[in-house]
Amino acid sequence: MFHYILKRLLQSLIVLLGVLVIVFFTLRLSGNPIDVLLPPGASEEMVEIYTEQLGLDKSLVAQFGIYLKNIFQGDFGTSYYYKEAVTGVIFERLPATIQLTLFSFLFTLIIGIPAGVYSALKSGKASDYIVRIFALIGQCMPVFWAGLLLIIVFAVQLNLFPTQGTGSFRHLVLPSITLGLYSAATTVRLLRSSMLEVLSKDYIQVATSKGLSKRKIVWKHAFKNAVTAILTVLGIQVAGLLAGSMIVETVFSWPGIGRLVVQSINNRDFAVVQAVVILIASIYVVINLLVDILYSIINPRVRLMKGSSK
Protein backbone atom coordinates (compact mmCIF):
# COMPACT_ATOMS: atom_id res chain seq x y z
CA MET A 1 0.00 0.00 0.00
CA PHE A 2 2.70 2.45 1.05
CA HIS A 3 4.76 1.55 -1.97
CA TYR A 4 1.74 2.10 -4.17
CA ILE A 5 1.01 5.54 -2.74
CA LEU A 6 4.62 6.60 -3.13
CA LYS A 7 4.62 5.49 -6.74
CA ARG A 8 1.37 7.33 -7.45
CA LEU A 9 2.73 10.48 -5.85
CA LEU A 10 5.85 10.33 -8.03
CA GLN A 11 3.67 9.88 -11.08
CA SER A 12 1.64 12.89 -9.97
CA LEU A 13 4.74 15.07 -10.03
CA ILE A 14 5.34 14.15 -13.66
CA VAL A 15 1.72 14.89 -14.44
CA LEU A 16 1.88 18.29 -12.75
CA LEU A 17 5.03 19.19 -14.65
CA GLY A 18 3.29 18.27 -17.89
CA VAL A 19 0.32 20.42 -16.97
CA LEU A 20 2.65 23.30 -16.19
CA VAL A 21 4.39 23.04 -19.55
CA ILE A 22 1.10 23.08 -21.44
CA VAL A 23 -0.39 26.02 -19.56
CA PHE A 24 2.81 28.04 -19.72
CA PHE A 25 3.27 27.82 -23.46
CA THR A 26 -0.36 27.91 -24.63
CA LEU A 27 -0.97 30.99 -22.50
CA ARG A 28 1.92 32.82 -24.10
CA LEU A 29 0.77 31.83 -27.55
CA SER A 30 -2.68 33.21 -26.83
CA GLY A 31 -1.76 36.86 -26.45
CA ASN A 32 0.14 39.50 -24.61
CA PRO A 33 -0.82 41.26 -21.36
CA ILE A 34 0.69 44.57 -22.46
CA ASP A 35 -2.44 45.47 -24.42
CA VAL A 36 -4.54 45.10 -21.30
CA LEU A 37 -2.13 46.80 -18.95
CA LEU A 38 -1.45 49.94 -20.92
CA PRO A 39 -4.03 52.51 -21.93
CA PRO A 40 -4.77 52.62 -25.67
CA GLY A 41 -2.76 55.79 -26.20
CA ALA A 42 0.49 54.44 -24.72
CA SER A 43 3.59 55.03 -26.80
CA GLU A 44 5.85 52.36 -28.28
CA GLU A 45 8.49 53.43 -25.79
CA MET A 46 6.18 52.66 -22.88
CA VAL A 47 5.34 49.28 -24.42
CA GLU A 48 9.04 48.47 -24.51
CA ILE A 49 9.61 49.56 -20.91
CA TYR A 50 6.72 47.38 -19.76
CA THR A 51 7.77 44.38 -21.83
CA GLU A 52 11.18 44.54 -20.23
CA GLN A 53 9.86 45.06 -16.72
CA LEU A 54 7.60 42.03 -17.04
CA GLY A 55 10.44 39.95 -18.44
CA LEU A 56 8.51 39.28 -21.63
CA ASP A 57 11.45 40.27 -23.84
CA LYS A 58 13.30 37.05 -23.04
CA SER A 59 12.81 33.86 -25.04
CA LEU A 60 9.96 31.58 -24.02
CA VAL A 61 12.31 28.84 -22.88
CA ALA A 62 14.30 31.27 -20.76
CA GLN A 63 11.07 32.59 -19.23
CA PHE A 64 10.02 29.04 -18.42
CA GLY A 65 13.37 28.33 -16.80
CA ILE A 66 13.08 31.36 -14.58
CA TYR A 67 9.53 30.46 -13.70
CA LEU A 68 10.45 26.89 -12.73
CA LYS A 69 13.35 28.08 -10.65
CA ASN A 70 11.10 30.51 -8.79
CA ILE A 71 8.46 27.86 -8.17
CA PHE A 72 10.99 25.65 -6.43
CA GLN A 73 11.73 28.60 -4.19
CA GLY A 74 8.03 28.88 -3.45
CA ASP A 75 7.53 31.99 -5.59
CA PHE A 76 4.61 31.70 -7.99
CA GLY A 77 5.14 35.13 -9.45
CA THR A 78 3.37 38.45 -9.34
CA SER A 79 0.00 39.25 -10.85
CA TYR A 80 0.42 41.83 -13.61
CA TYR A 81 -3.10 43.05 -13.12
CA TYR A 82 -3.38 43.24 -9.35
CA LYS A 83 0.32 43.99 -8.88
CA GLU A 84 0.70 41.68 -5.91
CA ALA A 85 1.96 38.17 -5.20
CA VAL A 86 -0.11 35.47 -6.93
CA THR A 87 -0.35 33.33 -3.80
CA GLY A 88 -2.09 36.22 -2.03
CA VAL A 89 -4.45 36.84 -4.93
CA ILE A 90 -5.47 33.18 -4.95
CA PHE A 91 -5.69 32.50 -1.23
CA GLU A 92 -7.96 35.50 -0.79
CA ARG A 93 -10.48 33.87 -3.10
CA LEU A 94 -9.96 30.22 -2.26
CA PRO A 95 -12.21 30.07 0.84
CA ALA A 96 -15.22 31.25 -1.18
CA THR A 97 -14.75 28.50 -3.75
CA ILE A 98 -14.14 25.83 -1.12
CA GLN A 99 -17.29 26.89 0.72
CA LEU A 100 -19.31 26.71 -2.46
CA THR A 101 -17.88 23.33 -3.45
CA LEU A 102 -18.48 21.80 -0.02
CA PHE A 103 -22.05 22.98 0.14
CA SER A 104 -22.80 21.83 -3.36
CA PHE A 105 -21.45 18.44 -2.37
CA LEU A 106 -23.65 18.49 0.70
CA PHE A 107 -26.62 19.27 -1.51
CA THR A 108 -25.60 16.38 -3.74
CA LEU A 109 -25.66 14.02 -0.79
CA ILE A 110 -28.88 15.29 0.78
CA ILE A 111 -30.81 15.06 -2.46
CA GLY A 112 -28.94 12.39 -4.37
CA ILE A 113 -28.74 9.54 -1.87
CA PRO A 114 -32.33 9.38 -0.62
CA ALA A 115 -33.69 9.93 -4.11
CA GLY A 116 -31.43 7.25 -5.60
CA VAL A 117 -32.35 4.64 -3.00
CA TYR A 118 -36.01 5.54 -3.22
CA SER A 119 -35.98 5.23 -6.98
CA ALA A 120 -34.35 1.79 -6.81
CA LEU A 121 -36.90 0.54 -4.26
CA LYS A 122 -39.82 1.78 -6.32
CA SER A 123 -38.23 0.51 -9.51
CA GLY A 124 -40.68 0.43 -12.37
CA LYS A 125 -43.36 2.37 -10.52
CA ALA A 126 -44.55 5.85 -11.46
CA SER A 127 -42.60 7.49 -8.64
CA ASP A 128 -39.40 5.86 -9.93
CA TYR A 129 -40.01 7.38 -13.33
CA ILE A 130 -40.64 10.80 -11.85
CA VAL A 131 -37.40 10.74 -9.88
CA ARG A 132 -35.48 9.51 -12.89
CA ILE A 133 -36.92 12.13 -15.21
CA PHE A 134 -35.99 14.86 -12.72
CA ALA A 135 -32.51 13.44 -12.43
CA LEU A 136 -32.11 13.33 -16.18
CA ILE A 137 -33.35 16.89 -16.57
CA GLY A 138 -30.85 17.93 -13.92
CA GLN A 139 -28.11 16.40 -16.02
CA CYS A 140 -29.38 17.90 -19.26
CA MET A 141 -29.72 21.57 -18.38
CA PRO A 142 -26.90 23.96 -19.23
CA VAL A 143 -25.54 25.19 -15.89
CA PHE A 144 -25.89 28.92 -16.51
CA TRP A 145 -29.45 28.45 -17.64
CA ALA A 146 -30.35 26.51 -14.52
CA GLY A 147 -28.71 29.21 -12.37
CA LEU A 148 -30.61 32.02 -14.02
CA LEU A 149 -33.91 30.14 -13.72
CA LEU A 150 -33.27 29.61 -10.00
CA ILE A 151 -32.50 33.31 -9.51
CA ILE A 152 -35.68 34.35 -11.25
CA VAL A 153 -37.94 31.96 -9.39
CA PHE A 154 -36.45 31.87 -5.89
CA ALA A 155 -34.76 35.24 -5.60
CA VAL A 156 -36.78 37.65 -7.73
CA GLN A 157 -40.28 36.14 -7.72
CA LEU A 158 -40.42 34.44 -4.31
CA ASN A 159 -37.76 36.60 -2.66
CA LEU A 160 -36.53 33.65 -0.59
CA PHE A 161 -32.83 34.04 -1.25
CA PRO A 162 -30.52 36.88 -2.26
CA THR A 163 -29.75 37.05 -5.98
CA GLN A 164 -26.00 37.32 -5.62
CA GLY A 165 -23.06 37.93 -3.34
CA THR A 166 -21.74 36.37 -0.16
CA GLY A 167 -22.08 37.00 3.51
CA SER A 168 -24.64 34.65 5.02
CA PHE A 169 -25.75 31.07 4.74
CA ARG A 170 -28.68 32.16 2.62
CA HIS A 171 -26.29 33.44 0.00
CA LEU A 172 -24.91 29.92 -0.38
CA VAL A 173 -28.14 28.15 -1.17
CA LEU A 174 -28.83 28.97 -4.82
CA PRO A 175 -25.24 28.78 -6.10
CA SER A 176 -24.70 25.49 -4.25
CA ILE A 177 -27.82 23.99 -5.78
CA THR A 178 -26.80 25.17 -9.25
CA LEU A 179 -23.31 23.77 -8.91
CA GLY A 180 -24.54 20.53 -7.32
CA LEU A 181 -27.40 19.88 -9.72
CA TYR A 182 -25.39 17.84 -12.16
CA SER A 183 -23.68 15.74 -9.50
CA ALA A 184 -26.91 15.21 -7.58
CA ALA A 185 -28.53 13.93 -10.75
CA THR A 186 -25.54 11.69 -11.43
CA THR A 187 -25.67 10.33 -7.87
CA VAL A 188 -29.33 9.42 -8.24
CA ARG A 189 -28.70 7.54 -11.44
CA LEU A 190 -25.56 5.76 -10.22
CA LEU A 191 -27.07 4.76 -6.93
CA ARG A 192 -30.26 3.53 -8.51
CA SER A 193 -28.53 1.27 -10.99
CA SER A 194 -26.00 -0.13 -8.51
CA MET A 195 -28.78 -0.81 -5.98
CA LEU A 196 -30.80 -2.59 -8.63
CA GLU A 197 -27.80 -4.69 -9.50
CA VAL A 198 -27.32 -5.69 -5.87
CA LEU A 199 -31.02 -6.43 -5.44
CA SER A 200 -30.95 -8.82 -8.38
CA LYS A 201 -27.97 -10.76 -6.98
CA ASP A 202 -28.60 -14.35 -5.94
CA TYR A 203 -27.63 -13.95 -2.33
CA ILE A 204 -30.15 -11.20 -1.85
CA GLN A 205 -32.84 -13.35 -3.38
CA VAL A 206 -31.82 -16.12 -1.02
CA ALA A 207 -31.84 -13.79 1.95
CA THR A 208 -35.28 -12.56 1.02
CA SER A 209 -36.57 -16.07 0.69
CA LYS A 210 -35.14 -16.83 4.12
CA GLY A 211 -37.57 -14.27 5.44
CA LEU A 212 -35.33 -11.30 6.07
CA SER A 213 -37.22 -8.15 5.29
CA LYS A 214 -36.33 -6.49 2.05
CA ARG A 215 -36.01 -3.15 3.78
CA LYS A 216 -33.31 -4.40 6.12
CA ILE A 217 -31.31 -5.84 3.28
CA VAL A 218 -31.60 -2.67 1.31
CA TRP A 219 -30.29 -0.55 4.15
CA LYS A 220 -27.40 -2.89 4.74
CA HIS A 221 -26.32 -2.79 1.14
CA ALA A 222 -27.39 0.74 0.49
CA PHE A 223 -24.57 2.05 2.60
CA LYS A 224 -21.81 0.42 0.63
CA ASN A 225 -23.36 1.40 -2.66
CA ALA A 226 -23.92 4.92 -1.50
CA VAL A 227 -20.29 5.33 -0.54
CA THR A 228 -19.11 3.95 -3.86
CA ALA A 229 -21.46 6.26 -5.72
CA ILE A 230 -20.34 9.25 -3.68
CA LEU A 231 -16.71 8.47 -4.42
CA THR A 232 -17.39 8.26 -8.12
CA VAL A 233 -19.32 11.51 -8.09
CA LEU A 234 -16.56 13.13 -6.07
CA GLY A 235 -14.08 12.19 -8.78
CA ILE A 236 -16.35 13.61 -11.47
CA GLN A 237 -17.04 16.75 -9.51
CA VAL A 238 -13.37 17.46 -9.00
CA ALA A 239 -12.72 17.09 -12.72
CA GLY A 240 -15.45 19.61 -13.49
CA LEU A 241 -14.67 21.81 -10.50
CA LEU A 242 -13.20 24.73 -12.35
CA ALA A 243 -15.59 24.66 -15.29
CA GLY A 244 -18.57 24.62 -12.95
CA SER A 245 -17.32 27.33 -10.65
CA MET A 246 -16.32 29.56 -13.56
CA ILE A 247 -19.92 29.69 -14.68
CA VAL A 248 -21.69 29.55 -11.32
CA GLU A 249 -19.43 32.18 -9.77
CA THR A 250 -20.04 34.47 -12.72
CA VAL A 251 -23.82 34.05 -12.57
CA PHE A 252 -23.99 34.55 -8.79
CA SER A 253 -21.14 37.11 -8.45
CA TRP A 254 -19.36 34.73 -6.11
CA PRO A 255 -15.87 36.02 -5.27
CA GLY A 256 -13.97 32.78 -5.90
CA ILE A 257 -11.34 31.15 -8.05
CA GLY A 258 -13.62 30.52 -11.02
CA ARG A 259 -14.33 34.17 -11.57
CA LEU A 260 -10.69 35.03 -10.93
CA VAL A 261 -9.64 32.70 -13.69
CA VAL A 262 -12.16 34.09 -16.18
CA GLN A 263 -10.88 37.61 -15.51
CA SER A 264 -7.25 36.57 -15.50
CA ILE A 265 -7.60 34.93 -18.88
CA ASN A 266 -9.26 38.04 -20.25
CA ASN A 267 -6.41 40.11 -18.85
CA ARG A 268 -3.70 37.62 -19.81
CA ASP A 269 -2.56 37.64 -16.20
CA PHE A 270 -0.18 34.75 -16.86
CA ALA A 271 1.07 34.10 -13.33
CA VAL A 272 -2.45 33.87 -11.89
CA VAL A 273 -3.75 31.50 -14.57
CA GLN A 274 -0.67 29.29 -14.24
CA ALA A 275 -0.97 29.07 -10.48
CA VAL A 276 -4.70 28.32 -10.60
CA VAL A 277 -4.19 25.57 -13.16
CA ILE A 278 -1.47 23.99 -11.02
CA LEU A 279 -3.68 24.25 -7.96
CA ILE A 280 -6.67 22.66 -9.69
CA ALA A 281 -4.52 19.93 -11.22
CA SER A 282 -3.02 19.15 -7.80
CA ILE A 283 -6.45 18.93 -6.21
CA TYR A 284 -7.56 16.65 -9.02
CA VAL A 285 -4.56 14.38 -8.62
CA VAL A 286 -4.83 14.16 -4.84
CA ILE A 287 -8.59 13.57 -4.75
CA ASN A 288 -8.35 10.87 -7.37
CA LEU A 289 -5.61 9.13 -5.45
CA LEU A 290 -7.75 9.25 -2.31
CA VAL A 291 -10.77 8.00 -4.22
CA ASP A 292 -8.77 5.05 -5.56
CA ILE A 293 -7.48 4.16 -2.12
CA LEU A 294 -10.94 4.39 -0.57
CA TYR A 295 -12.37 2.28 -3.37
CA SER A 296 -9.91 -0.46 -2.57
CA ILE A 297 -10.75 -0.30 1.13
CA ILE A 298 -14.48 -0.58 0.52
CA ASN A 299 -14.20 -3.08 -2.25
CA PRO A 300 -11.12 -5.25 -1.66
CA ARG A 301 -11.63 -6.99 -4.99
CA VAL A 302 -10.40 -3.88 -6.80
CA ARG A 303 -6.67 -4.31 -7.05
CA LEU A 304 -4.83 -1.02 -6.78
CA MET A 305 -1.84 -1.94 -8.91
CA LYS A 306 -3.96 -2.78 -11.89
CA GLY A 307 -4.40 0.87 -12.80
CA SER A 308 -7.22 2.91 -11.55
CA SER A 309 -10.82 2.79 -12.45
CA LYS A 310 -12.59 6.03 -11.98
Binding site: L16, A243, Y284
Partner: peptide, 19 residues
Amino acid sequence: MRLVDIVLAFPFILLAIFV
Protein backbone atom coordinates in the same frame (compact mmCIF):
# COMPACT_ATOMS: atom_id res chain seq x y z
CA MET B 1 -1.46 6.82 -19.22
CA ARG B 2 0.75 9.63 -17.91
CA LEU B 3 -0.08 11.65 -21.01
CA VAL B 4 -3.74 10.90 -20.46
CA ASP B 5 -3.40 11.95 -16.81
CA ILE B 6 -1.88 15.26 -17.86
CA VAL B 7 -4.79 16.06 -20.13
CA LEU B 8 -7.30 14.95 -17.49
CA ALA B 9 -5.67 16.98 -14.74
CA PHE B 10 -5.69 20.06 -16.96
CA PRO B 11 -9.00 21.85 -16.45
CA PHE B 12 -10.67 21.05 -19.75
CA ILE B 13 -12.58 24.29 -20.04
CA LEU B 14 -9.29 26.24 -19.97
CA LEU B 15 -7.77 24.04 -22.62
CA ALA B 16 -10.80 24.72 -24.79
CA ILE B 17 -10.57 28.45 -24.15
CA PHE B 18 -6.87 28.63 -25.00
CA VAL B 19 -7.09 26.57 -28.15
